[in-house]
Amino acid sequence: MAGARDNAGAEPGRGGGGNGSLAHGREAIIRVRGLTKRFGRQTVFDGLDLDVWRGEILGVVGASGAGKSVLLRCIIGLEPVQAGTIEIFGTDTARLGHRQWMELETRWGVLFQDGALFGSLTVLQNVQVPMREHLDLPQAMMDELALLKLAMVGLEPDAAHKMPAQLSGGMRKRVGLARALALDPDIVFLDEPTSGLDPIGAAAFDRLIRNLQRTLGLTVYMVTHDLDSIFKVCDRVAVLAERHIVRAGKPEELQRHPGHPWVEAYFCGERAHGPVHGGAAPEGGGAERI
């Protein structure tokens, strides 16, 4: 395993990745450069650049169909890309062999939109799948660790023997998160973690993500639509529009200085709220773009 990781390695700029991935005194744990992705004739990304700093919660927003989920799938290697480099932990993922790739995959966890739990396994077995695949642990210890992970995502032990079909949407997401955390990863990718949850459930899930990130020193990459989540949990927001990341920065900053019509419409539109409002004169025609 390259790159020593401190348990709560949230301190910016710790050694590790090296080779030029340090900027502004922070270490880019994911570094995307010049990413180009096409589906047939449709170009989804055209020379897209993105940095994710170690220990931050990055929210990725964008209009429906802008390619938020596609970008996530490109980064974790589920979609081939036509051009560009994706560096994770300072290594170019395109150059990894099968074994190294497997090794890399154990260092991140992914929560898919509806949890993507395996329907034929119980909740406990679902959480143990990564341990079973990648480690050699005694069953008793896997049970203990899986229960611990379930507790960390706020599930009671009596959920352990349930089948995914018996769970509510919010519980499925929690189990999916527990599975993503099974190997104590450095990075967690979340695909719309709060979509489909009621506001109370969504707020609880936001809090959960925040707490886990602090406790475990995670880096979180979160695809979202939810303005509340963005203001409550995200350290930084990257806005995907017109095949690029058009803006990236603190949510409050983007709200104050949108600098792009879509960002303006998103952060200052009818449903927008939050601590600050004002500054930045509208650049005209923003709202019509939605």
């Binding site: 406990l124 049970d143 203990e144 229960l147 611990l148 507790a151 960390m152 032990p157 009596d158 352990a160 023997h161």
Partner: peptide, 10 residues
């Protein structure tokens, strides 16, 4: 969070 018993499967 820890030290919780796994309920026996039915």
């Amino acid at each position: 969070r820890g030290a919780r018993e796994l309920p026996p499967p039915e």
